[in-house]
Design a protein around this nucleic acid. Structure first.
Lengths: 300, 300
DNA sequence: AGTGGACTCTCCCCCGGAGGGAGGGTCCAC
DNA sequence: GTGGACCCTCCCTCCGGGGGAGAGTCCACT
């Protein structure tokens, strides 16, 4: 019989399992894979050949980029829980692929263009706009999905029984975003409402008044719940038009905000996107998006 | 005129550029973006509005997941160098997408199957095999590409003027991989040669003798350069057949090596893959790959 | 002129998943 | 009994930050 119960030193076990000695020690320290026996006197770790199965599973799951903590949970979880964990990881990888594809597109442009493509950035003045607004919060990963949900709710709300049947809304759709898109992003999508609303409809908190300190805004208990009617204040703005898929929007924002700062202007959140030509209307290379950022009134 | 030369505190500048104070301090420490002025007495950092342009570029490039070091290089590089840097990053992202797609596929299987799919693992005995071999080294990312290059060189070599015109080679193609696929991977692809070679052709270094200690093998100065004629030694083996695309091969390796270890056997590098049905012959779900690992002779 | 609150400073520890190396102990075959 | 391979612990490094402690600063309002 082959030596089934012979214990292996860490080096030999590492070679068998395609792991490094450092990794095995690390897995021991973190409780992921403890040696079968540890010599109390010398501290030497000895592994049983049967442990290779767990070690190989760890190798497999690490190749799939699972965090060690998740691997640990997976190893000792029952099948239904295990499947749930694996699905969560699958979703994480799928999200990263989505983001990487957008990155790839942008990098392609930057590398081939040799620099930032030119955007014509112009100053202008926006009127106050009455908007029907649906709000949501989203991290960078779920942004697209959440915006889509908002648009759906918005159109349903405008058309449905709770909606103001006597209002007409006219394209384009607007998207409102806080300036600090980095984290804890809050998004709102609004369709411009052409008709004036009766004052009793409630004008809500004008979005503009939250602009200076959006962090303290009354955190929208209405997340994706229903419509609110708000007035988006007008004033001096800087704007540009982006042509192409949304994955390249960061380039446009870079150009727009660079221009704002270079002219010594102070942007006022939220940033506004107007979807002039969007999904379903044309191939994505022909989409057009107007980006508008309001700036503080020039004191001069 | 707007206040062009008014200096901004770190907090205000951070909000303008969608960065955190922590990040700005970090960028200062690493020399990526130093404040326009640092008060010598208090240590307060003050930024000029004009620095927002660089800061925004950093934000943009960080969204594209570029390492800070690369961003630093990009900021001060000339356009041609910049394009080169960006293309390298693009390739990196493209590689990650490729790997993530394979991961996604595997995770899908694992999650849906609720566990590892079953592989029939059998013991057997392989004869010595004469192979014409092309070698290459590759990291995990370039593996597929390098193997493809090897196959191309191999077929060209067998058919071309330098090749042994009087030799016939028969499918399937073999791939030889060291057991420790972790890093600094060396790979070899070989076609089995049917006819006996005249001794003067040179039998080269038999792969088998390198197996025990592949690290010290004469590091193949012939990387992707030309053919070598080698004898892959036979002996007792454990093998299984994998059905489907190569992205799911890790599952098969996991099953195969688990079985090897559970039976108390010692694998002997290299691991061998025989491509029974491969790309170009059928849709990838119908590919078949035989995985063979030689084990030490049973001393019993 | 004082005061309170917002802002900023440095310093240290934390994350994950390791790798590198120093300095010293252990095992085993020859 | 000895050399060399192997193993131990401990600490530092990477990347791109986040969190918090404790102390100092700035500014607007009284």
């Amino acid at each position: 019989m082959p030596d089934h119960d012979e214990l292996l030193t860490i080096g030999r076990f590492a070679r068998l399992c395609r792991l490094s000695v450092k990794q095995l020690r690390h897995y021991d320290e973190t409780g992921l894979l403890a040696p079968a026996r540890v010599d109390a006197a010398t501290g030497y770790r000895y592994y049983a050949p049967g442990q290779a199965r767990d070690a190989l599973t760890i190798v497999l799951l690490r190749e799939l980029d699972l965090p060690l903590a998740v691997i640990a949970a997976t190893l000792c979880a029952e099948p239904p829980d295990r499947a749930r964990l694996l699905r969560a990881e699958r979703d994480r990888v799928a999200e990263r692929i989505t983001r990487d594809r957008a990155r790839l597109d942008l990098l392609e442009r930057l590398a081939d263009g040799g620099g930032l493509p030119g955007y014509e950035v112009v100053r202008g003045r926006e009127p106050d706009r009455r908007l029907a607004v649906v709000r949501a919060t989203a991290g960078p990963a779920e942004l697209g999905e959440r915006v889509g949900a908002c648009v759906g709710l918005l159109l349903a709300g405008l058309a449905g029984p709770g909606g103001p049947g006597d209002l007409r809304w006219s394209p384009p759709l607007w998207g409102l975003f806080p300036l600090d898109l980095g984290d804890g992003m809050r998004i709102a999508v609004g369709a411009e409402v052409e008709t004036a609303l009766p004052a009793t409809e409630g004008v809500g908190t004008p979005v503009g008044t939250q602009a200076g300190a959006p962090e303290e805004s009354p955190e929208g208990g209405r997340l994706e719940r229903g419509l609110a009617y708000e007035v988006l204040p007008g004033g001096p703005v800087v704007e540009t038009v982006h042509h192409g898929p949304y994955s390249r929007l960061p380039l446009a924002y870079h150009a727009l905000l660079s221009a704002v700062h270079e002219r010594g202007l102070r942007p006022v959140p939220p940033v506004r996107e107007a979807y002039l030509v969007g999904p379903g209307e044309a191939p994505d290379e022909e989409w057009m998006t107007r980006l508008v950022v309001r700036v503080e009134e020039d004191a001069t």
